[in-house]
Design a protein around this nucleic acid. Structure first.
Lengths: 229, 229
DNA sequence: GACAAGCAGATTGTCGACAATCTAACAAGA
DNA sequence: TCTTGTTAGATTGTCGACAATCTGCTTGTC
């Protein structure tokens, strides 16, 4: 028998497609935090009945990017500065853990994939496609979690990533300026290829803190704006 | 104005009640891993239409205790030994992190609540109510996560806990013998009241490993049984 | 007997309509 | 003026029915 692993075939339910559409809209910031999702309106726009739409919404509520209040509506989650702090501090812990687990598992395929994803980030950066830049950067960082061979960790990280992506997208949208062109991931990739695990863990922590400060400043701005209303 | 903070009122949707019912059935092991959930049958038993039932199922799928295959059905998640290992190793990391965050926040209310939950475990143990014993023990361990003041961590821990509770319940059910009567939480509580944070973290790790071995043995049994089919 | 095509039953996915609930505006009374 | 009760409109929650898909069996063919 030929050695040929087929990937899973496409999801054929409307629900799955709706989930993908909504998630993308939220994570790219097209739907703003706090905004209400009107079921009737959205179902008409998508040419779909409310049943699969509602099921899709339940999934995203559990995913943590929507919140639901019975008989009141479903809303895009609000972003508070504290949320970003919390997400980031947990992310640090998970990253350290992932590096520890993935470290002995590194092989040629790992390094190849690392380069591939790194290249994808650089390409998105050159193309000035900020949305894609965020996506690819998170995928680059996700590699260690995929390689850690711990399904629960991976799942946890993916949930966390949803929010981080959303935070970054909002940030980018707000400050509407060109993205830094220099390659901030160079040392990260180099360290993951190296022999010093502690150094890699340390850098993951510090590199994160870099973007973090900007993001926090943005979040604090949000807070202020919210308190005025 | 009187200082009186009302808690949130009860969920009034059928969906929420269905979620609670199903979750309880799964976490206590009444619904076994791999078992298929027939929508029509369940909706008739609950005297409810399929719409809220399906929405409830979507939530539990995202919660990680159900899995769904389009047009095939929704099933209670299968438990593999690897899953338990993964969950436990991540749990260790989260516990250490939680202790670190919660440590400076400890106050009288914390200690009181600690004693209260500890007492609940002892009571369930005396009553030989194994299900409740598992619940209360997890609630005892959850306190540090609640006190850590990190919403993302808390949420993550709660998701993880769902599965741990399920694993323990299955384990208990399988070996159908009286639960150890001695109090394994005594030192844990004492350490959380003490002054040595590192010691508390260390104990959390080791105490976990205790039950862990038993649980793993059970899981390996499951694996074997599954491979025979 | 082996195998593919096709059919029947069961189950999941989706739809449109109805019921329950909330919100906001307005009226009535203190 | 402030509070309380009422009502209309909009929106969410739920229902029963229909469509799409899967599974297992039967049938026919070689």
């Amino acid at each position: 028998m030929a050695k040929l692993d087929f990937g899973p075939i496409a999801d054929t339910t409307r629900r799955a497609e709706i989930v993908a559409l909504l998630r993308r809209a939220i994570l790219t910031g097209q739907l703003e935090p706090g905004q209400k999702l009107n079921e009737l309106r959205i179902s008409e726009q998508m040419r779909v009945s409310r049943a699969p739409l509602r099921e899709a919404m339940r999934e995203l509520v559990q995913e943590g990017i929507l919140t639901s209040i019975p008989y009141a509506g479903t809303f895009v989650v609000d972003v508070a500065a504290k949320d970003i702090i919390d997400a980031y501090s947990l992310n640090k812990v998970l990253d350290e853990f992932a590096i520890e687990l993935a470290w002995p598992q590194r092989d040629q395929r790992f390094f190849d994939e690392l380069d591939r994803r790194h290249e994808a980030v650089k390409q998105a950066t050159r193309a000035k496609d900020t949305t894609r830049q965020i996506e690819t950067a998170l995928q680059l960082h996700g590699l260690i979690h995929e390689w850690a061979d711990n399904s629960v960790l991976l799942e946890t990280w993916q949930r966390l990533t949803s929010r981080l992506q959303m935070y970054f997208a909002l940030h980018q949208r707000a400050r509407n300026e060109p993205v830094p062109a220099e390659d901030v991931h160079e040392t990260y990739v180099a360290l993951l290829k190296g022999a010093d695990m502690r150094a890699a863990q340390r850098h993951a922590r510090e590199h994160i803190d870099l973007d973090f400060e900007e993001l926090l400043a943005y979040a604090r701005g949000l807070e202020k704006r919210a308190s005025k209303n």
